[in-house]
Simulated assay, not measured.
Amino acid sequence: MKLLKLGLAVFCFATANTFTYAQETNEAKAKSIIEKGIDAMGGKELFSSIKTLYTKSATITDGRNVYFITKEMAPNLGSFEIEYEGRIVYRSWFDGSTGFEMVNGQKKLADQEEFKDKPGRKYIMNELAYLDPSLYKVEFVDTDKAENLHKIKATATDGSVVNLYYDTKDFLLKKEIKENPVKNSFSTILCEKYKKFKDLVYCSKTVLRSEDGDQILNLVDLSYNKNIDKKDFK
């Protein structure tokens, strides 16, 4: 009986160690892929130096030409604007603690669920957040050899999940599937093209996939570390 108990204890210990090793290996592999993705986009030093980011993308909504504009400032300030015929027709923003939106010239509190990841945000570039264990736990899932994509699961401290799909050759991020367990919803974002803006390689053609159909965004302007001030988030 003693030998049986000892044998079971050794088996359980060995199994636990194997499981822990597998977890550590999957985490290390995931981080290695993300780091290669960062290198492909300009490098960790460049990413760390980016304190503001401005993007303007052209798209078509309800048959109309519109622009989507984003502004970000480290660590967690952000805004989103919709421009139509030269004027801003919608705006939402996070001022560091609270999310707001402007509709028909009226400022009001926004759905705070949409900004739940903002308070703990530390970086402009999401890839740096994925490497920070205080924000995300990452693990390598598998490699889709037919699509040539590495799949990584990134779980935030709030329980939300982002599935990241990196190209097996150039290590650029080609797809994201975001899961929101609170709202029981998910969204899919595809990156079909990348372009270089100064030293930063960034997605220049994005496809937002939904049940209502695909929406294509073509990036027409990007700048970093200039032309953004804290007043942009008030």
Rank of each mutant, 00 (worst) to 15 (best):
R87G: 06
K31H: 07
L200N: 01
A154Q: 02
V10E: 06
F11C: 12
Y165E: 10
S48V: 09
V138C: 07
T20F: 15
E127R: 06
D199M: 14
D132T: 04
F186V: 08
K122Y: 04
V161F: 05
M73R: 14
Q106F: 11
K169H: 13
G7Y: 15
Q215W: 03
L8M: 05
S160D: 10
I34E: 00
D144A: 00
G78P: 06
K44M: 08
S49T: 02
D111C: 01
G7I: 15
F100M: 05
L6N: 15
Y90G: 15
F233P: 00
K193E: 11
Y54Q: 13
A129T: 08
Q112H: 05
K193H: 09
A16S: 15
D132A: 02
I228Y: 01
K153C: 01
E192P: 05
S134Y: 00
F11Q: 12
Y21P: 00
F100H: 12
I189S: 10
I69P: 06
K175Q: 03
V162Q: 08
T168Q: 04
G37V: 05
K230A: 13
F115S: 04
F68Y: 14
E35I: 11
T188A: 09
F80G: 13
G63E: 09
M125D: 09
G213L: 10
Q112A: 02
V162C: 07
E176N: 14
A154P: 03
G86W: 07
A156R: 04
G78A: 14
E113F: 12
A154L: 00
K56E: 05
K153Q: 08
S210N: 04
V182Q: 06
K107F: 05
V201D: 08
P119G: 06
D144R: 01
T61Y: 07
M41S: 15
F186M: 14
N225A: 01
K183T: 14
A74K: 13
F11S: 09
I228Q: 04
S57F: 10
T15H: 11
D158Y: 06
R209M: 08
I124H: 00
N180T: 04
E179F: 05
L3C: 03
C203F: 15
I82T: 10
T188Y: 03
N225P: 01
Y165F: 05
S48R: 11
Y194V: 00
K178C: 11
A74Y: 08
S185E: 04
E35F: 12
T61W: 06
L53A: 06
T61K: 15
